[in-house]
């Protein structure tokens, strides 16, 4: 029987939901890199992003989860789908999926994976198990205060970056300016 969530107490179903959501994330990641059709890849990526938003919720980061849904799934992925429709698909369907150096790439990636495993096995003690402080109720407010206080400069630079990206995208994609 599930009980009301007390501060400082973890919900009962955490373990189940963690494995479900992370499994979905990884499975959709596999689909993204193996599907022949880019639209299927994009679809898989969307599901992965949503599952990841669920993981953020489990980490008591509702604001990041909301931003993930609204920006990634609702914004960036629509852009991707839009572009996939604009570029020719039929040819890429019949072509080879992987490039010629795929063996090298795979070996390099696996080496990176081994590195990760070694780091995590050796450095396990560095990541102590600690329950999240339940700041869920004011998470958004605190992030807002941080963004406009401590990280003001970075925030302004991010806006500049977006401006540059807008201009760059227009310059690159438009035939005649």
């Amino acid at each position: 029987m599930e009980q009301a969530i007390q501060p400082g107490m973890q919900p009962v179903a955490t373990t189940f939901f963690f494995y479900l959501l992370s499994g979905l994330t990884l499975l959709s990641g596999v689909f993204v890199i193996t599907r022949k059709n880019p639209v299927h890849s994009a679809l898989a990526l969307i599901f992965g992003l949503l599952a990841q938003a669920g993981l953020y919720l489990m980490l008591y980061a509702p604001f990041v989860a909301g931003v993930q849904i609204i920006l990634y799934a609702g914004g960036i992925m629509v852009l991707f789908l839009f572009v996939i429709m604009l570029v020719n698909l039929e040819r890429s369907q019949r072509e080879e999926r992987f490039n010629k150096q795929w063996v090298v790439g795979l070996v390099a990636a696996v080496a990176l994976g081994v590195l990760f495993v070694v780091v995590y096995v050796k450095g396990k003690a560095l990541f102590p198990y600690r329950i999240a402080q339940p700041l869920e109720n004011s998470n958004t407010q605190q992030i807002g205060v941080m963004l406009y206080g401590q990280y003001m400069f970075a925030f302004e630079i991010a806006s500049l970056l977006l401006l540059v990206a807008i201009i760059g995208a227009v310059v690159m994609a438009k035939k005649r300016i």
């Binding site: 509702p62 909301g66 609702g74 629509v78 839009f82 998470n139």
Partner: peptide, 26 residues
């Protein structure tokens, strides 16, 4: 009642664009 209520609403309603695009493409 979510802490991010209105953000959640906007985000979820923006997901329906995906359905429209997919329906048109498929």
């Amino acid at each position: 009642d979510l802490n991010i209520g209105i953000l959640f609403m906007l985000g979820v309603s923006s997901l329906s664009v995906l359905g429209v695009v997919m329906a048109g493409w498929a």
